[in-house]
Amino acid sequence: MAAPQTGPVPDTENTSPDDPGNIRFGLILALSAAFLFSTKPIIIKWLYGLGMTAMPLMGLRMVIALPVYLIIGAVLWGRMKRKPKANDVARAAAVGLLGYYLASLLDLSGLEYVSAQLERLMLYAYPSMVVVIGALFFGAKVSRTVIPALVLTYIGLGIMYGHDLQIAPPGTSEADITKGTLLILGSALSFSLFILFSKRSIAELGSLFFTCISMGSATVATLLHYAISEGLVIPEMDAPRWTGTLVLAIMATVVPSFMVSEAIKRIGPAKASVSGTIGPVMTTIMAILFLGEPFGWTAVIGMALVMLGVSRLK
């Protein structure tokens, strides 16, 4: 899957995929990213409660994050002895549209209809998509445990879907829950493709520079979308909205995006995706504590099945 490097990139040198220390650090990065990403639906649902909507929130988040990527990207570019080829940069930009524009747009749109618990579990299912797509189109090897693991995963998601129907607030119809679920599954599929396609670009550009390019392209796409759909008007903002958006942009977007790219470089896309086991648990705990979302045995069973199924994907 990975292509040979086109030139020396500082953060990809002297990295042995078989080194225990390297693998350990990659897992730490992946787990840390999973935790930070698990805060995203909590912050978004809180901001929705303050009156914000998906597209303005996504646009502001990307605008705030963009300077960080531009600065880091410029520093890395200046350090490169041989500059990347134009087609390598273009490929990374295209991959970024999958993982950071389309996946984010579908996710934020879906969160307007479903609970934070269901959203995180739906996204948590993306390793199953990584495994299946990797086997079908990338020649990845899979074991016989994949089919029962997939069955467990999607039975669990079905149970969680039913749980969301039970706890839906007044005015939320079954059609709304279904729409939100499909949007978030589309987000998971888009992010799965990003994980698989990103490995080659990370090998060519290095994880940090790849993240800068992919997030930069996603920001441009987001701003164009925002300008077309909303015009050039900034939504009404106050201190709580700005605070939440800043935290969302930096701690739940910029920091974990670099962690994920570096983790993929060190331990590969399959291990990086499966290591996000803590994500649904942390999101559920925070959804109960901070959002007051109901939680019962139905949710416990659904979450347990999804997590068991994903953990058995190899």
Rank of each mutant, 00 (worst) to 15 (best):
Y124P: 05
M80G: 03
V306S: 03
W46M: 09
S192V: 06
R120M: 00
T6W: 08
I184T: 03
G59C: 08
F37R: 01
V146G: 14
G139T: 02
I71S: 07
K85W: 05
T15G: 11
L102K: 05
P148M: 13
L208T: 07
V274T: 10
Y69R: 07
S192G: 15
V281C: 02
A116I: 10
L313F: 06
W242A: 08
P169N: 04
A125M: 12
T243N: 07
P67G: 10
V255R: 10
L60W: 09
A90T: 12
F295G: 07
I177P: 03
T172W: 01
S173F: 12
I147M: 04
G156C: 10
G292T: 14
Y161L: 14
V260L: 13
P269Q: 05
G244I: 00
G21K: 07
I202A: 06
N22D: 14
A149G: 01
L118A: 07
F209D: 02
K141L: 05
Y69C: 05
K40L: 08
E119M: 02
G26M: 02
I42M: 03
S201K: 12
A33Q: 02
G99C: 04
A149T: 01
L183W: 07
A92Y: 00
L76R: 10
A74F: 12
S311V: 11
L289G: 06
P20F: 09
T153Q: 06
A93F: 12
V131T: 11
P256R: 07
P240I: 11
D176S: 09
K314I: 04
E13H: 12
T6R: 14
